[in-house]
Nucleic acid binder design. Structure first.
Length: 286
DNA sequence: CATATGTCCTGTATGC
DNA sequence: TGCATACAGGACATAT
């Protein structure tokens, strides 16, 4: 569920409610939630306790909480169904509560990682000189990062022998884009998801990047996208961008540009939504 | 039974 | 033939 806008909403919540607090205790309730921490749950717990959390950062769909004066950070990925919630310590445990982080202050709240499918998780890693956790060095800058290199992205697209939606979802080319925002940006650009990237012109790439940025910023301004209570901010509240989606989930509904019924195709274990008239498939594609 | 918003691993193909 | 690289497809866990 969570793509860049949803993760950024969570990051902002953590900045407000968790930054600068000192960890008192950590409880790992499900080993799969810390599987990326190779040394195990006990090691994860002991290394965090007693340290102060800095200002949360994000790249693409990854976010991390620096641990001051350790050169390390708690890295989080929400996977398909993960949530980071700030809850009253007295609140009953969620059904899929996986990790609990308590603080040494009297604020009465704690940080909880809740995840139905446990595709996501937390782990602790050394940070490199730029503050990035070392294990996400392969993740490209995201399109809202001021240092994202539009021209390098275009050249990378031209080099690839793949199709445009695959490229948008390739986190080593551009990070933060998932299935929903890929379909939205492609609809706005009037490009079919199976269009080969090798033929992209510089203006076409620039237009696509512009739409990726626009749709993400619009989603961010209304708190992200959520179809049910699965995606929420740290206070458990849903965003409203689902009301503004033009492509995703609109199979059979009229295209908001031309009125043609929107189509859905199975694609990589999920779905691609597009307008069959505005987004013509390339040759030999259905 | 089909579907699910992500990432990573593995097998295969390709080219030097 | 050996090796490196790029790419596509599937595994992962659980719910609706």
């Amino acid at each position: 569920m969570p793509e860049l806008p949803e993760v950024e909403v969570v990051r902002r919540g953590l900045e407000r409610w968790v930054a600068h607090r000192v960890v008192a205790g950590v409880e790992v309730l499900h080993p799969r939630a810390v599987r990326r921490h190779v040394a195990g749950g006990d090691d994860f717990t002991h290394r965090i306790e007693g340290h102060r959390i800095g200002v949360p950062s994000r790249r693409g769909k990854y976010l991390w909480l620096p641990l001051e004066e350790t050169g390390q950070a708690i890295l989080a990925h929400l996977g398909m169904s993960g949530q980071l919630l700030v809850q009253p310590v007295t609140a009953p445990a969620e059904k899929h509560l996986r990790i609990r982080v308590g603080f040494d202050d009297g604020l009465g709240t704690e940080l909880r990682f809740v995840d139905q499918r446990t595709f996501g998780g937390l782990s602790l890693h050394d940070t490199t000189s730029d503050g990035l956790p070392d294990v996400i060095g392969h993740i490209a800058r995201d399109p809202l990062d001021p240092l994202f290199d539009d021209d390098a992205f275009h050249r990378a697209l031209r080099r690839k022998r793949t199709t445009v939606k695959r490229a948008l979802l390739d986190q080593s080319l551009i990070s933060g884009v998932g299935n929903i925002y890929a379909d939205e940006a492609l609809w706005r650009t009037r490009v079919h998801y199976e269009r080969p990237t090798a033929g992209f012109t510089a203006p076409r790439t620039a237009e696509l990047l512009g739409h990726v940025r626009d749709v993400m910023n619009e989603a961010l301004s209304v708190g992200g996208t959520s179809f049910d209570s699965l995606y929420v901010n740290v206070n458990g509240e849903s965003g409203y961008f689902d009301r503004s989606l033009d492509a995703y989930g609109r199979e059979g509904l009229p295209c908001r540009r031309c009125g043609t019924p929107m189509a859905r195709r199975p694609w990589m274990n999920r779905s691609s939504y597009f307008c069959p008239r505005c987004q013509r498939p390339p040759r030999a594609s259905s």
